[in-house]
Design a protein around this nucleic acid. Structure first.
Ligand SMILES: Nc1ccn([C@H]2C[C@H](O)[C@@H](COP(=O)(O)OP(=O)(O)OP(=O)(O)O)O2)c(=O)n1
Ligand SMILES: [Mn+2]
Length: 563
DNA sequence: CGGGGGCCTT
DNA sequence: AAGGCCC
């Protein structure tokens, strides 16, 4: 059970783990009022929990957007269709047994009366997604998006400023590990770091947020409230839909170790879980109990520590403020595109669609990428190989975008896209495409002439390295137009490995990234890499640009104003 | 069984 | 250019 006995000589990562005895959070003493509650004996987690995190996850997101657009769909089983699959469905449909990502055939078998609405065009979902994130900015600017329907909020500052004045007295919604949410909690020993009151207040704030989202946007969601991102997200899944769950540190291990699979951890994907399976690690508890040295041998220091931390609920990765998108793409899948005319027609459509969004965004992309998927011939039959994607990219001459008439942009880009495609497809031989994706990336920063002067204040530099806020914004990998000083490369350069192509010797492949998926990019940014967008000192200067219409400009305004 | 997006790292 | 992860 314990893993501290096997980690002699490795002070590094035995430190953050506190296995309970003598810890702040030890909860093993008599709890007179709630002696019937099953408190865990071992409280392995961080000693302190200074942050307060809320995770928001919309209910059956695409389906809900369609139900808002057409309320008559609310009371019928509804599936959102993308080609042959039901990507998601409303809760009436789930009650009948329809699940997310089910094939149409299976869904119709389960539920013949299933109403289907096409969800191949994500425009409306994307719009609602950003409305939600923007609404949440009202509470804190420290918001990280994950997909279209999830947001992490670091409400630490808000909580700290309110907690002393308000001294909250009850939790809103469910409390993980407590059956009756009206239970008398006075016997529950509170963590010595003071997080009990903070998390309690955050649960009230989460309720406010959810009420606000419903009143303003008519949308319902779940929330998880805890002291780090991992736990907030996992907590929120405990009660669905339209509910919220709060997780206190005393119950962290209980939650984690009740998870049946390491796949339940965001960041442990198909490949990693398969590698863990080889070591006989199936559950998070298995991981928690696994010998540390062996884990290091298998995965290297960084990843091993990361896995162990996760299994104990330790996650210090910051909420990274979202910014403008790093890429804008559109794709479609096909049964079989086998002639050039059809391909050119589809590319034309895709480029047209995605360019509209690029124009709305207002930044100019510097790179165009085309991705395709080919079906392969197997036993005389065309079979789609889903692993097989190829892509080609090229730089985009900025002269394309010099013309103010944006309708002129399409033709040269379609031609570039076709030439990229020709690098992958020998059109003199038979071919069969099943997917095309057109993606614009490497955006130029939004502040060309009209706006750049608003951000050139000399004393705009952050002075305090402790100020977490400034260093946890998503680094714009877009090119900076002006000063271009000191662009240091600072990412770790670890050998990589392919998790699920493990046909051959898994051990020989080497170490991978260290930070597992979801938690990557958690580190602080160098000052020179920080966006200048968020400097409060320049807020006043934004008054005059309120009329700008591009999304990238609107975003700057949003980020700098209190709404 | 098989959408349509996104993010980051190597 | 590819691969891993997320929704
Ligand atoms: N592999 C996936 C996963 C998700 N989505 C889309 C459809 C979902 O509506 C949305 C949000 O994903 P969730 O996993 O949060 O699922 P839902 O919001 O639909 O349902 P739930 O109520 O369980 O959160 O993202 C997708 O297209 N493909
Ligand atoms: Mn959701």
């Amino acid at each position: 059970m314990d893993f501290e006995d096997s980690d002699e000589g490795d002070e590094d990562w035995s430190k953050p783990v506190n296995d309970g005895d003598g810890s702040f959070c030890s909860n093993t003493r008599n709890s007179p009022k709630v002696s019937d509650l099953n408190f865990p004996k071992k409280i392995s987690t961080d000693i302190e929990h200074p942050r307060t995190i809320i995770h928001i996850d919309m209910d059956c997101f695409y389906a809900q957007v369609e139900m808002i657009r057409n309320p008559s769909l609310r009371h019928v089983p509804l599936g959102i269709q993308q080609k042959h699959i039901i990507v998601t469905c409303n809760y009436p449909a789930r009650a009948i047994g329809v699940t997310k990502l089910m094939t149409i055939k299976d869904a119709k078998t389960k539920c013949p009366s299933l109403i289907m609405v096409s969800g191949e065009d994500l425009t409306e979902y994307r719009k609602m997604s950003y409305k939600i994130s923007e609404y949440l900015l009202k509470y804190t600017k420290k918001i990280e998006r994950l997909g279209f329907d999830e947001n992490f909020l670091d409400v630490s500052e808000l909580v700290n400023s309110r907690v002393s004045k308000e001294s909250p007295s009850q939790f809103s919604g469910h409390l993980y590990g407590i059956q009756d949410n009206k239970a008398d909690l006075s016997g529950l020993k509170q963590c010595g770091c003071g997080c009990y009151q903070r998390i309690m207040l955050a649960s009230n704030i989460a309720q406010e947020i959810r009420d606000g989202l419903y009143n303003d946007l008519g949308i319902t969601c779940c929330a998880g409230i805890s002291y780090n991102k991992l736990l907030a997200k996992l907590a929120g899944e405990k009660h669905k839909p339209n509910k919220q769950t709060t997780l206190l540190p005393e119950f962290t291990l209980q939650l984690l170790h009740s998870l049946p699979s390491t796949r339940n951890i965001p960041g442990i994907g198909y490949g990693m879980s398969k590698r863990l399976r080889v070591l006989d690690i199936d559950s998070v508890l298995d991981l928690y109990n696994y010998n540390q040295e062996k884990l290091i041998t298998e995965f290297g220091q960084q990843t091993a520590k990361f896995l162990k931390d996760i299994s104990a609920g330790i996650d210090h990765t910051p909420v990274v403020r979202y910014g403008l998108p790093q890429s804008i793409s559109d794709e479609d899948s096909y049964r079989d595109l086998n002639n050039i005319k059809d391909i050119e027609k589809e590319i034309d459509i895709l480029v047209d669609n995605v360019l509209k969004r690029v124009v709305e965004d207002g930044r100019n992309p510097q790179t165009l990428r085309v991705t395709i998927r080919k079906s392969i011939l197997k036993d005389d039959k065309l079979v789609i190989d889903y692993g097989n994607r190829e892509s080609r990219q090229c730089p985009l001459s900025q002269t394309i975008f010099n013309n103010k008439d944006t309708s002129t942009w399409k033709t040269p880009i379609v031609e570039l896209a076709i030439s990229l495609l020709n690098k992958m497809v020998d059109v003199t031989k038979p071919f069969h495409l099943t997917l095309i994706n057109i993606c614009f990336t490497k955006f130029l920063k939004t502040c060309s002439k009209d706006i750049s002067t608003f951000f050139s204040s000399p004393n705009s530099k952050p002075t305090n390295s402790e100020n977490d806020e400034f260093f946890t914004q998503r680094t714009s990998s877009s090119t900076k137009i002006s000063p271009a000083k000191g662009i240091e490369s600072f990412f770790a350069n670890n050998p990589t490995l392919n998790f699920h192509k493990e046909k051959r010797d898994i051990k020989a492949v080497g170490r991978q990234n260290g930070m597992v998926g979801f938690f990557k990019n958690g580190g602080k940014r160098k000052e020179s890499e920080s966006n200048k967008n968020n400097d409060d000192s320049k807020r006043a200067k934004l008054d005059t640009i309120f009329l700008l219409t591009h999304q990238s400009h609107q975003f700057l305004i949003h980020q700098n104003y209190k709404i």
